[in-house]
Amino acid sequence: MASSSGTTADNTIVSLQRYPFARRSLEEKKRVKELGPDQPDLQIQLQTSDRGRAYTRGFSWGSYEKRSWLSGCTVSNSFYCFPCLLFQTTGTDNSVCMMVEQSHGESSSSQATKRRRTTSPQERQRIAEEVCDTILGHTKQRFSFTNHLVSATLLQSDKFAHYNKTFPEDALTSTVNAYPMLNGNKLKTELSLIYSKDEFKACCGAVDLFHLFMENNLGEVFSETVTLLKLIITTPMTTAEAERCFSTLKRIKTFLRNTMTQERLNALAVLLMEKGLVTEITDLNQKVIDKFAELKERRAKFMFK
């Protein structure tokens, strides 16, 4: 810890305010670190009162001993947080206590004041550029992986006739790179067969094509195509549906209703998520009542004497 009473040292409050720590060279930063916080003798006198008793508060060297991070300024008679001053953000006030003595004949007492700093237009522009660069960087990183979107073009039924003449080699390569678990040669053979058959051209979308394979027990024959269809169908375009599912679970499994089996939780979640389909079922309430009535009695029988 270093103590300095001048205003020309590198670790003084005035020097750090005029020439911020972040803009200094590595050697200058090491110099400030070696000097430590500037802790001069301050001429602070503050008249205060408590419960009708008036007394004077003044500067004490014990403040520096108890708080090694404390730094003082002889110009403004203020205490500052030295680490906060080094790593401050422009426009913030790091003074711990602003106690300026009101002398020069106006008054014999001193009062605490606050200092406010305004951010310059150049600093605002610099902060805005940093925020925009951060947003652009995260956006590019989020959407850098787009090869999986190309795989959907392989199973568009309206392009089967064109693919039958010219096989989409580039789309197949991108798909295999995006999903290494697929066998590229076998997938190419299956797709070539699909493109040449009129039965598959009548399907509208990946879901219809997947249902066609399942209804005709073609899952083992077109195993790679079925795997690709599952990936395409289950890959969400947005996370809104997943977020709604979590919100639904929060409404079902509350603090007061926390002891339920996984089977019951899944059933209640499906009923709430698919409430549109539930409302279309005729006589649902009556069927639930009849089902519950057919169950065995759960009430214990007590015998009274």
Rank of each mutant, 00 (worst) to 15 (best):
S15K: 05
D158C: 07
N164E: 07
R23G: 14
N258M: 14
R117Q: 05
L70E: 00
K197G: 06
T89W: 00
D41G: 07
A240D: 03
N77W: 01
V221I: 00
F304M: 15
R257K: 15
T239V: 10
L155V: 12
V96R: 06
T225D: 02
T92V: 10
N11E: 10
R18T: 07
S110H: 05
D38C: 14
M303P: 01
I127D: 01
A293M: 15
F160P: 01
I13H: 04
T12A: 12
T153Q: 12
P20L: 06
L70W: 01
E199N: 14
K291T: 06
T7R: 07
N164C: 11
G62R: 12
S63W: 02
L85V: 08
P168L: 12
T92L: 10
R116P: 01
L212C: 09
M260P: 02
N183C: 12
L228T: 01
G137W: 05
D283W: 07
E65M: 15
R51N: 13
L229Q: 01
L284F: 12
G36A: 13
P236Y: 07
A269F: 04
V14P: 01
T254A: 06
N266G: 05
E169M: 09
T12S: 13
E220W: 03
R126V: 13
H148P: 02
E220I: 00
L265M: 12
Q47R: 12
T119L: 08
V226P: 03
Y19V: 05
H138T: 13
R126W: 02
L172Q: 08
R115C: 08
R116E: 12
M1F: 02
D41R: 06
I252N: 04
A161K: 14
E123N: 04
L229M: 11
H138D: 15
K188G: 04
L172Y: 08
A206H: 07
Q102V: 08
T8V: 11
Q102E: 07
C81D: 11
A269C: 08
S5I: 03
L154M: 05
Q45F: 11
T92K: 10
A300W: 00
Q47F: 04
E297G: 14
T254Q: 08
Q45N: 09
A112N: 08
V207E: 14
L295I: 07
T175E: 09
C204R: 11
L271C: 11
F292S: 12
T12E: 04
L154T: 02
T7K: 01
F292Q: 15
E297K: 14
R23Y: 07
L272N: 08
P236N: 13
T118E: 01
M237S: 04
M98F: 00
H211E: 14
I194N: 05
I44C: 08
G6D: 10
I13K: 04
F21G: 06
S192E: 00
T134K: 11
N147A: 12
A269V: 13
Q45E: 08
R124T: 00
S49I: 00
F213A: 06
C73A: 05
R31L: 14
R116L: 13
N11G: 06
A206I: 09
S15W: 07
R264L: 11
F246I: 10
M181R: 14
L295K: 15
Q88M: 10
S78K: 03
S151P: 02
A206P: 15
